[in-house]
Structure formats: C-alpha cells, structure tokens
Simulated assay, not measured.
Amino acid sequence: MRKVTETIRPKYYVDRRGHDLFYEFEQGNYPAILAIGFCYLTMMKYERRAGKKTADPTEDLKKARTYFAEYETLLRKRAEGEIHDQGIDLALNYEDFKKRKEIYLKRLDRIEEDIKSGRAKR
C-alpha cells in the first residue's frame, strides 16, 4: 500500500510578499528547465539522505515527496505551455559571469549584514 503523500512548505522560505520558490517557479519567474531541474535534484538529495543524517528517514522522505509533487506540477505546466525556458541563455552564459559573480557575492554580503544588524525584514 502506498503512503499518503505528505508535503512540507515551511514559512521560513516565504518572501516579504508571502511567496516561496514554488510560487515563483509556477509563475514562470525562472526558466522552467532550471526550476524542474532544481526540484528533481533536490528530491534526489533528500531520497539519498534519508536515514543517514538522522536515524528516522520520515522528514527527509516528506521533503522528497514535496519536491516530487512540485516537479510533477512544473512538468505539467511546461507541457501545457504555462511556463517556458525564457532566460535560460542568461543563466548558462559564462561570458559575463565574472560581473554577475561580483554582484551576487555583494548581494550575499548585504543580506548577511542586514540579518546580523536586525535590518532584515522577516
């Protein structure tokens, strides 16, 4: 008998507007192929980790099921033309990576500073 699929969507992944990454993926705010790949690889990670990080595999398997459910949703949305791969060229372009790397690392530094100083909005 198959277990009922229980998924996890923690509130700490929600942004200031109340949206998590799954919402952003489903709205097409990222190239579909990257969102689908993210979900696929994350579900594989939790499947492989189950019973290794902790003796009880329950939490990791719930997480794997969560990402599997989102993976299925995204595959359907892409097949139906609701989400697209627009922007994939930028994500895979190495030519301007040095500039993007600098911008991204500064962004991470700013986020860290905002969190540590209490300026971050939660």
Rank of each mutant, 00 (worst) to 15 (best):
R9I: 08
E112K: 02
D85I: 04
F97G: 11
A50F: 00
M44K: 12
E102Y: 04
K45F: 13
T5H: 10
R100K: 09
G28Q: 02
R48C: 13
G81D: 03
E80G: 02
M44I: 10
Y30Q: 13
A32I: 01
Y67C: 03
G118R: 04
R48L: 14
T42C: 05
R65P: 00
E82H: 11
G28R: 01
T58D: 08
K106E: 10
I111K: 00
R9T: 15
E102W: 01
D89Q: 10
T5Y: 02
R100F: 07
Y94V: 14
E24N: 04
A32P: 00
Q27A: 15
E113F: 07
P57I: 13
G37C: 09
L90I: 10
E80Y: 02
R17L: 08
L92F: 08
C39L: 09
E82D: 09
Y13K: 02
D89C: 07
L21Q: 06
I36E: 00
R78Y: 14
I111N: 00
Y40V: 04
G37L: 06
C39K: 03
L75N: 07
R119Y: 03
E70S: 08
T58I: 05
C39A: 11
K63R: 12
R48H: 07
Y71Q: 03
G81A: 07
R49V: 12
R76T: 15
A64W: 00
Q27F: 02
Y94D: 12
K53M: 12
Y94W: 13
I88K: 04
Y30T: 14
R65Q: 12
K77A: 15
K101I: 01
Y30M: 09
E24R: 11
K52S: 08
L41Y: 14
Y30N: 12
T54E: 11
L61C: 06
T54D: 08
K106H: 10
Y104W: 10
M43Q: 11
L92S: 05
F97M: 07
I83M: 02
Y67M: 04
K116T: 14
G87H: 04
R17T: 13
E59V: 11
F22Q: 04
E47K: 09
E59Y: 05
E70K: 05
G87L: 08
K3I: 13
I8C: 03
E72F: 06
Y71R: 01
M44W: 05
Y40H: 11
Y12C: 13
T5E: 08
I115M: 09
K53P: 00
E26D: 05
S117L: 02
K3N: 14
D15T: 06
K53T: 14
V14Q: 12
V14T: 15
R9W: 08
D109K: 01
K98V: 15
I111G: 00
A35D: 01
